[in-house]
Computed example of a mutant assay.
Amino acid sequence: MGNFSWQEPFGISLLDWGITAGLIIVSIIGAKVIFWLLSKVVSKLARKTKSQLDDLLIDLLEKPIAYIIGSFGIWKSIDWLQLGETGQGRIDKIFFIVLLGFVAWAITRTIEALIESYLVPIIEKTESDLDDQLIPILRKVLKSTVWIMAIILGLNNAGYDVGAIVAGLGIGGLALALAAQDSVKNLFGGFTIFVDKPFKVKDRIKISGFDGSVEEIGIRSTRIRTLDGRMVTIPNSKFSESAIENISSEPSRKVVLNLGLTYDTDSDGIKKGMELLKEIVSSKNGVDEKVVVGFNAFNDSALNIICVYFISPGADILGVQTEINLEILENFSNAKLDFAFPTQTLFIEKDN
Rank of each mutant, 00 (worst) to 15 (best):
F4G: 01
F4H: 12
S5L: 11
F10Y: 13
I12G: 14
L23T: 07
I24Q: 05
I28D: 00
A31T: 06
R47L: 04
K48M: 08
S51T: 07
Q52P: 02
Q52T: 05
L53W: 14
D55E: 12
L60N: 15
Y67Q: 01
F72C: 01
I74E: 01
W75M: 12
I78W: 04
W80R: 15
E85Q: 13
T86G: 02
D92L: 04
I97M: 14
V103H: 00
T108C: 01
I111R: 15
E112F: 09
L114C: 05
L119R: 06
L119N: 02
I123P: 01
I137R: 15
L142A: 14
K143W: 04
T145N: 08
V146A: 05
I148G: 14
I148Q: 10
L153I: 07
N157K: 15
D161K: 11
A167K: 13
G168I: 07
G172W: 11
A175I: 09
A179H: 05
G189V: 03
G190H: 06
V195L: 09
K202I: 04
I205V: 14
V214P: 05
G218S: 05
R220D: 01
L227V: 07
L227P: 02
E241I: 05
I247R: 14
P251V: 06
S252F: 11
R253I: 07
L257A: 07
T262V: 06
S267I: 06
S267L: 11
K271Y: 10
K272Q: 12
G273L: 10
M274T: 07
L276M: 10
L276C: 05
K278T: 07
V281W: 15
V293H: 03
A297E: 14
N304R: 12
D316L: 06
S333G: 01
D338Y: 11
T343I: 07
Q344H: 12
K350R: 11
